[in-house]
Design a protein around this nucleic acid. Sequence first.
RNA 1: GGCGGUGUAGCUCAGCGGUAGAGCACGCGGCUCAUAACCGCGGAGUCCCCGGUUCGAAUCCGGGCACCGCUACCA
Length: 675
Amino acid sequence: MAGPRTFYVTTPIYYVNDLPHIGHTYTTVVADALARFHRLAGDDVYFLTGTDEHGQKIERAAKARGISPKELADEVVENYRKLWPALAISNDDFIRTTEERHRRGVEALFARIRERTPDAIYKGKYVGWYCTGCESFYPENQVVDGKCPEQGHPVERVEEESWFFRLSAFADRLLELYDSHPEFVLPETRRNEVRSFVAGGLRDLSISRSRSKVSWGLPFPGDPDHVVYVWFDALTNYVSALGFGDPEGAPLYEKYWREAPDATVLHLVGKDILRFHAVYWPAFLMAAGLPLPTTIFGHGWWLRDESKMSKTRGNVARPGPLLEDFGADALRWFLLREIPLGHDGNYSDEAVLDRTNSDLANNIGNLFSRVVALVAKGEKGTVPAVEPLYDDELGEATREVRERYRAGFESCDPAAALRALTDHADALNRYLVRQEPWRRKGREEHCSRVLRTVVGELAHLALRLHPAMPGAAATFWQALGLGEDPATEIAAGKDLLAVDDWAVGGNSVQGPLKVFPRLDKKKVLGEAIAADGGGGRDAAAGRPAKPGKEAGAKKKADAAPDEDEGAGIITIDEFFRVKLRTAKVLKAEPHPNADKLLRLEIDLGDEKRQLVAGIAKAYRPEDLVGRTIVVVANLKPAKLRGLVSEGMLLAATGPDGVPHLLMPDGDVPPGSPVS
RNA sequence: GGCGGUGUAGCUCAGCGGUAGAGCACGCGGCUCAUAACCGCGGAGUCCCCGGUUCGAAUCCGGGCACCGCUACCA
């Protein structure tokens, strides 16, 4: 006989280079809610989070402070370890990639891959850019103008020996996986992206770095001159935490990692790291001949003023101040309820406040308070032990609402599940209005049965609030005289959501109850603004906002529809931001690594530059030399097939798509302004 | 440039061939057991544009436009 279903849910491991922000908080809260839901449903749940602690950035940051990388990691990891309990995160384990068990897991995975697919890992040459100033590697697309993106140091092209994973050999099997298991990548739109990425061909993956350049990492098994590079190290946490590679045996791994047919493994990740989880990770596992996770879910981002939060913009929302203002329960409810998982959402304090007031204060909080007061007054605080009295409307509503709740969580749509809960409360409010249990004269029996019914329904509601708001759920549970916490009822194999009627008759209810007081918008938002000087939550979190930029961006967003820019019109000032200049072509030759591109050397009067232009099909290099053309002089440099282009030449596109170069009429010296 | 997605009420979004919907916000009425709560009613939308298929299209097809994502020998 099969045991209960197992449910293994993970967050990504967070890089200890950064303090926790709303994004980390979001992923972790969603994972927690799912874990708690599955526990209520009687599933055998294991919930993992942790930290990623290796790599150049940590090494560098530690060096700057004169401490060891491990000391730095130990320090930063505390921010996460303290935050999660404050948010009522119920993780069963917390893994750090600097732990011994993780090293063992990585080594075991290597060994297993080499055993099952001997040619999957091979030695080759890594070609990339190395910045000696930062002591960091940068991929092709990040190097700008021959300089590193962080500090603007010059970078040098490096070629060194590296170990590779033969990712290219797995494309067909991955495509087969996406097609035969559509739930492997969710939501669907992300699966399409991942699929087309893989269909476009995969390049082998460099999975090591020379120890002389990066020393803060796990030793590469079998090659002490190298360390294991980022993704192979990080992804392995999902099995190393379960004891994979432990010589003493790994019961958790056996149980949760899909060795059983009824096991679900869900990796919850932000959409920015979806590819690593949906492409690299299954490929590693395939090479090792291990079972794959059930689902990789790529959720969306919280935006501010329609743009991504980032440290450089200084608009990152930090969980600390939010917890102070709203409390863990309200913040969790907001994160789960406001946007469907997978969508992006706009974060604002005002949105949290509106959500809290309408869902929690007016609706759920008020309902509990209302019923507790009714029982206190009408029944002297004891829930009458009588038969419930369901009218048709309530009976239908409760059935429907419970189905939607379960379906919502089971399909990774917590927002839908929580919507079912406020609908449940609505249905109960309407029931009370229909039945009027406060009009007792001559209808005591009826009123008692009505109150018994509502309290029974509130027990269902309180139980179901637990995944989203464990604190409030416990308070409500106690107020109904049911015990300390619905969580104490949890047991593997016992589906609490299937309980038909909680025996509330005879319970003493405790009031008055005011769990979610209504928040005064002006007061709370006013204080938040006053407290940090108008920059939102950021300054309070120690990250000063940039008031000018912030305000400007917001105004633009708000005003856009009725302004000229709505019609694609720009102002003269905007036009003048583009610096157009004439330039003389000094040299032209084919791009060494592309057949549609030409490499040009141009004279801008005061300087010479290299341009890469997509005109090889229309112009021969020798026809260009000596000609005067028009270029955008202040365009951000970019690399095209390995060559930096420091500007863009202007050309008219003919009806057939062929470019026709713009040239000034008459003779002007190179570098002349164009307007 | 290629692929995918989105465009519906002030806001967030559901509907995906049969008389335009929900929540929030807003207005009016009711009630007073409850947290200015709750209940009821209401306003407003060429369902992005043009064309087609159909007895009938927000929904299907074709063509545009705009925005978003992924990707590229775009700069």
